[in-house]
């Protein structure tokens, strides 16, 4: 009994510290979980690999050193359809200066995507996403476009249709180098 008494204080401290650790973890985990864990502007763009409509594998990190517009779209979304010709125009204009547009399609039938690409003469890479990258990037509204700098950082997350006056200043700021014709 005297032995027990001698260690009582230590036992008490031990119990309280176990309780404290569990408690901090419980409360901490729910506080932490409330935070939005999806990629935001200022963060590194999470890497992914997807099969393209061209049958090739496309990995985001393959485009390191180039400005990337990661565009989430679907043929069923009218603003996505509306902005496609503009995106195509900018792709043609700026691809030699290091601009890449990746059109991440939202899990549609391949034939549907193919038909659309033919209809609008799209030449930038179209990637077929089975919900995986959409969820990874936390995209719930369409279209959503991530502007990614050549060093792989998200500069801006743009929700909604992009118009000329949105796109022009952003692309020009983003492309790694300008030549005289730009």
């Amino acid at each position: 009994m005297t032995g027990l008494k001698k260690y009582r204080k230590q036992i008490q401290i031990a119990i309280l510290s176990v309780v404290l650790i569990i408690g901090l973890y419980t409360i901490g985990s729910s506080l932490f979980a409330e935070k939005d864990s999806f990629p935001q502007a200022g963060e590194k763009a999470p890497d992914f690999t997807l099969r393209g409509l061209d049958g090739e594998l496309h990995q985001l990190s393959d485009y390191h050193g180039q400005a990337v517009l990661l565009n989430f779209w679907g043929t069923f979304c009218p603003p996505c359809v509306d902005e496609t010709p503009l995106l195509q125009q900018y792709y043609e204009q700026y691809k030699d200066q290091g601009l890449v547009i990746l059109g991440v399609n939202l899990n549609e039938s391949t034939v549907t995507v193919q038909g659309f690409v033919r209809q609008f003469s799209v030449t930038y890479p179209i990637l077929l996403d089975k919900e995986q990258v959409r969820k990874q990037y936390g995209v719930n509204q369409f279209p959503t476009t991530f502007f990614i700098s050549p060093d792989g950082m998200i500069v801006e997350k743009w929700i909604g249709e992009l118009r000329e006056h949105h796109l022009k200043p952003r692309v020009e700021r983003l492309v790694p180098r300008k030549d005289d014709t730009a």
């Binding site: 569990i22 408690g23 419980t26 729910s30």
Partner: peptide, 13 residues
């Protein structure tokens, strides 16, 4: 799932 509800459960424990 809130921190306060979990906190209370933990205090009961």
């Amino acid at each position: 799932e809130t921190w306060w509800f979990r906190g209370l459960l933990f205090m009961i424990g």
